[in-house]
Amino acid sequence: MLAQSPVRTAVIILIAIIVVLLAALAAWTRLKAREIEALYPPTGEMIDVGGYKLHAVHVPRPVGADLPPLVFIHGASGNLLDQAVPFRPRFEGRAEMLFIDRPGHGWSERGGTANDTPDGQADAIAAAMKAKGISSAIIIGHSFGGAIAASFALAHPQMTAGLVFLAPATHSWPGGIAWYYGLTQTPLIGPLFANTLALPAGLSRLESGSACVFAPNPTPGDYISTTAPALVLRPGAFRNNAIDVANLKPYVTRIAPRYPEIKSPTVIITGDSDSVVLAHIHSEGLARDIEGSELVWIRNLGHKPDHVTTDLAVRAIEKVAGKDVDLKAAAATAEAALAADDASCQG
């Protein structure tokens, strides 16, 4: 029997090492994902939306409410806590609220392939609203949630009392997406990457990544612990998030020409220092496409008006609800508070 060549032996040993390493990473990922889930358990209820369930926090309409129902849609890599943390305390006693984990995010089930694009997710949110007896609401969408909010208004105009877009991603943009989104959404390599390397790599960048999303504004000290962004690093959620992001550009390229059909009262809040979405494409595009909408530009604001300029967002929601609000004055106050912010992004 002929002996194996040294090269072949080395290759076999290398392959064996890689297999063992991947198996170890997969086992570690499963354990770490369980730790993350134990740290951030569900905080709401599971709502059946037709064959699958969405996790949501529903705040019933209070006695003496002065605002219509409010429905909040989080962005990519997030969950309902990202909107509930800044907004729930501000609207307690004033409005019925629904904070939803988008399909396949947080604790929500993914549902079918219809939820791979914003229109399917908009339909899922509409179904959740109906299940809770909400016939119409102001829809608030941050970032990726902006594309869903716009799709919601197109598909369910009778359920859309108004729209507030916060740093929205709604139009086609030059260039592509981060390499790991493209890799993760592929059929074979994607699940392998999500189940082995994504979680340890993501945990190592959780703080720096959050800093880049907020920059030039500082990240709140308790942001990671209170909004649980680590939930997106679990293999299933990570892959769902990648599919969402990979499908966004072709989807908005197709759907954006329909935005002029939107007739709901609309306010768009955006920052001139947003490094995540190009405000002059997305926010200005919405202001151009939705007749009667109001665009509020904030100097030195990054991608998180929901957390950084919460007061301004509250005022925008009030204005969409029909209250007499001076958004220019509110914007000036917000800008003054941010003038000295110079937090850096090291991502």
Rank of each mutant, 00 (worst) to 15 (best):
M1I: 10
M1A: 14
L2S: 12
Q4N: 10
V7N: 06
I15G: 01
A16Q: 02
A16W: 07
A23W: 12
L25Y: 13
L25G: 00
A26D: 08
A27D: 11
L31P: 02
K32M: 10
A33H: 04
A38R: 15
Y40G: 01
P41E: 11
D48G: 11
V57I: 15
H58L: 13
P60Y: 04
G64S: 09
A65T: 09
P68F: 07
S77D: 13
G78P: 03
A84V: 08
R90I: 10
G93Y: 13
R94E: 03
I100H: 03
P103D: 08
W107Y: 11
E109W: 09
D116K: 11
D116A: 14
Q121V: 01
A124N: 07
A124P: 01
A124C: 11
I125K: 01
A126G: 12
A127P: 03
A128V: 10
A128G: 08
K130Y: 01
K130M: 06
A137E: 04
A137M: 04
I138V: 15
I140W: 00
G141K: 00
G141I: 02
G141C: 02
S143L: 09
G146S: 10
A149F: 01
F152G: 02
F152P: 00
A155D: 06
A155Y: 05
H156P: 07
T160A: 00
G162W: 04
G162V: 00
G162S: 09
V164Y: 00
F165W: 03
F165V: 04
A167I: 02
A167H: 06
P168A: 09
P168I: 07
P174C: 10
A178H: 12
G182I: 10
G182K: 13
L183N: 09
L183T: 13
L183E: 10
L188A: 14
I189V: 15
G190H: 11
P191C: 09
P191Q: 09
F193Y: 15
N195R: 15
T196L: 08
L199W: 02
G202N: 04
F214P: 01
F214G: 02
P220W: 05
G221C: 00
T226N: 13
A228F: 14
V232E: 03
L233P: 06
R234Y: 08
R234P: 10
P235M: 06
G236Y: 04
G236Q: 10
R239V: 12
V245M: 14
P250V: 09
V252E: 09
I255Q: 05
A256I: 03
P257Y: 14
R258V: 02
S264K: 00
S264L: 05
P265W: 02
G271H: 06
G271R: 07
D272Q: 09
H280L: 09
H280A: 12
H282Y: 13
A287I: 01
S293Y: 00
I298D: 02
R299C: 01
L301V: 14
G302T: 12
P305K: 08
D306I: 00
D306C: 08
H307S: 08
D311E: 15
R315D: 15
A316W: 04
E318F: 13
V320E: 00
D324S: 14
D324G: 06
A329L: 14
A334Y: 10
A336Y: 07
A340K: 14
D342E: 11
